[in-house]
Each structure stands twice: as structure tokens, then as C-alpha cells.
Design a protein around this nucleic acid. Structure first.
Lengths: 212, 212
DNA sequence: TAGATTGTTAATCGATTAACAATC
DNA sequence: TAGATTGTTAATCGATTAACAATC
């Protein structure tokens, strides 16, 4: 029986994809092992922090040698559940929605966008990078028939909560919210906010205070 | 003499925009005051955490009444430096680049994108939502003549470091990096990573472990 | 006045860092 | 063997939470 992964802190979860990108880049070289020290140097952080993060994923390294590259990549991918494909739908085919629909990199994260939805009739029936746009009223049926588990919200703030409710009502288990609005969901649904403003706030504030 | 804002923790900086969105929504009602308790309830967090965050921005509230809505919004905006306009350039006019160029909401964050750059000759000279696309070799001149301070990187991972170096060499003070690659910058340049994978990792991992 | 809320000070909690034995 | 690196245990640091006097 496969044991369930323990949960990790949010800072750890946010660092793991960074490591993964670096490790995948290394795959094109002929390195077979990588040490936590080398990873830490790449990101300017402490080696012990990398060791802790990696051990959270369940991997065991070899003293003096480090971690086997292939196994480490596999361990992180499995820990994040990126090794299995999750079907997702996206609601809101504006600029950001189109960008997400067209981003092939999500395949690396196991995210498979099976359908898009929008209230704009001129968009319905069109395809953006192989993903077809449907009217909102077909959402519940399409979510169920595709066994989609993740709903991506890229609608304007004013309709975000309504769309969220439709998604959750259709059986969606995880909401990835890009709309600048706080959403309310049941306890059994995971909500992750991905507003660009959060990241921009860190940048602009640090720029002002860097000399104080 | 205006005193420089103290620096805040990253968790605080990431929460402030959320409060701001909520407060701006409240502006359309006739509420003039808001308490930290009400804000906390909106986001399901502790009131004392909101009070600490708000006091970091320098605002002082009134016992029993709360915070004056207008002044609170102003205080957060000034703390994040969103009240003054920062000129920015964006490099990489792919899906995500176009989405960011077309997002009018950045005006609320004081971000003014003055020019875009791409190596694709078929894009050069075109305009996406009033932002013109230029060749990379014109970047230093345009950054300087516009006094741009922020560089947004939406190019593929393989060219991200090269573009970053060009931006920093042109005098850019803050890098907002969307490319899935670790970048190296000088100490006097602020780097903020905004990879979608960071946020997705939190979502997908939590979905797997929610019952453990 | 009584109740609600602020802001300060102290306590707790959790994440990061340090120390070090084990080991390839 | 000696040096480098892992993984465990303990210490430190910083963020969150609790307690409570001040006050509109």
C-alpha cells in the first residue's frame, strides 16, 4: 500500500517547482547526481533548507554523493501530484485565460485543460490552441463527463464568486483563482489564489525600501 | 521630510493587495469606516493579523470605530508604492506577454507598460492594446528615454537570463520574472519570481493531502 | 456608561538555521 | 583514509496569536 504524502509548508511547496525547473535543465547534461549544496547555490539559499525541502518529498540521498537526479525529479513530481494527469476547465477566455489555455508548459505539471467557458457568444464554438470554448450552462455536464477536478477562474472580479459556485456545484475539487476577489468555498474544496497583484506588491514594496 | 516606509514580511506584502481589493469593492457602498475584524472575517483569518498588517503601512485607527476607508486605501497604496506611476517594459510577446500587456488592472497598481520587445520580426511594429513591440536591440535606448524602472520577463526559459542581463544593463531596477528559470542579478536589483508553477504546486499538493 | 475596537506587550508556534554523528 | 554530504536533533529566529489596557 502506497503511503500518503505528508503535507508540507507553503514556503516549501513554492520552492519545490523552482528546484524542479533547475533539475530538469540539468537533465540535458550528463550529470547523474546532484547535491543539495549545488541546488542551494543556484538559488542563493542555505543547503540545509534544500535538504529539508527534499526530504519532505520522501527521497533519501547518499552521503558524499547527493541525490540521484532522475529519482529526485520523480520524487518531487509525485509529491506535487504532477506525475498523474488532472483534467481542468477554465472559465473566462480573456487575455489571461487565452494565455493559460495556450501554455504548453502545464503538461509538465500534469494539468490538462479539457474545456473553456465564456459568456461571450462570439467566442463560443471557437478553439484556442485545441481547447474549445463552451457556454457556461454546459459547464456542469462537461466537468462531469471529463471528470475534471480543477477549475481555473480568469473572469472579471464581479462574476468570480458566481463562477466559483457553479464550478464547486459541478464537483470541482480545486479552484485556481486569478480574479482579484476573495472567494468563499466549502471546507472540502481547495482554493488557491494566484493574483498577480500579490507578487507585484512584493516587488514594488521592496524597490522602495531596499535602501532602508 | 517624508519618512521611508519600513520593510514588511513577504506574507504581509502578499496579504495587503487582498485587503485592497476588498476595500475598493466597499467604496461603492456608503460605508466610511471598516474594522480589522470585518476584513478578517472576509478572508477567514485572525483580526489581530489584519491589525498588524495594517499598522505596518503606518495607518492609525480609531478604537471602537475602525479605520477610515479612504485613508486606509491610500495608506496601503502608498506603502506598496502603487500611488505613483512606475514605467515598465515587457520582453516576450507570447500568450502571457500579450495578456499582461492587455490587462488594464495594472493601472490600479501604478504599473505603466510603455513598450514591449520580442525577437520575432513579424511582431515588431505591431501594437497590442496601445503598447508597441520593438526589437530587442532598441531596448536600452527605450528604457532610458522612458525612465522605465521595472522589466517584465515573459520569454521562454532558455533566453530569460540573457534578457535579464540586457534589462539590468539598461538601468532597470526591478525584475518581474515569469519565465520558469532562476535568474541571477546584482544586489542592487530587486528580483521577484511570479511563476505560475509556484501557486499550482500549492493547489495540487493540498488536493492530494487534504484528507491526511 | 457599556461594548467594541485599537495598539502594545508578551507568549506561542512554526520555519529556518546550526551542530554534528553517520557514511559513501 | 580524508573530504564531502546526508539526515537527525537542537537552537534560533521571525511570524502569528493571545492578553489586556486604552479609548471613542
Amino acid at each position: 500500500m502506497k503511503k500518503l504524502p505528508k503535507s508540507a509548508s507553503i514556503p516549501t511547496l513554492r520552492r519545490l517547482p523552482k528546484y524542479l525547473h533547475f533539475l530538469q535543465k540539468l537533465q540535458s547534461t550528463d550529470e547523474k547526481f546532484i547535491s543539495a549544496t549545488k541546488i542551494a547555490n543556484e538559488f542563493g539559499i542555505e543547503p540545509i533548507l534544500v535538504r529539508k525541502d527534499l526530504s519532505t518529498t520522501g527521497i533519501v540521498g547518499k552521503p558524499k554523493i547527493g541525490f540521484e537526479l532522475e529519482r529526485l525529479i520523480k520524487s518531487i513530481n509525485e509529491f506535487l501530484n504532477w506525475h498523474s494527469v488532472q483534467n481542468a476547465v477554465i472559465v473566462g477566455v480573456g487575455g489571461l485565460g487565452k494565455a493559460i489555455m495556450g501554455y504548453v508548459g502545464f503538461q509538465d505539471y500534469g494539468l490538462n485543460i479539457v474545456a473553456a467557458f465564456d459568456s461571450d457568444k462570439t467566442l463560443i464554438g471557437k478553439k484556442i490552441k485545441d481547447v474549445q470554448v463552451f457556454p457556461i450552462n454546459e459547464l456542469p455536464e462537461i466537468v462531469k463527463s471529463n471528470e475534471a477536478t480543477i477549475g481555473v477562474i480568469t473572469v472579471p472580479a464581479t462574476s468570480a464568486q458566481f463562477i466559483c459556485d457553479v464550478l464547486v456545484g459541478s464537483g470541482i475539487k480545486g479552484i485556481w483563482n486569478f480574479a482579484p476577489r476573495a472567494l468563499k468555498v466549502n471546507n472540502d474544496v481547495i482554493l488557491e489564489n494566484a493574483q498577480l497583484s500579490q507578487s507585484l506588491a512584493v516587488l514594488t514594496h521592496k524597490m522602495v525600501t531596499k535602501n532602508s
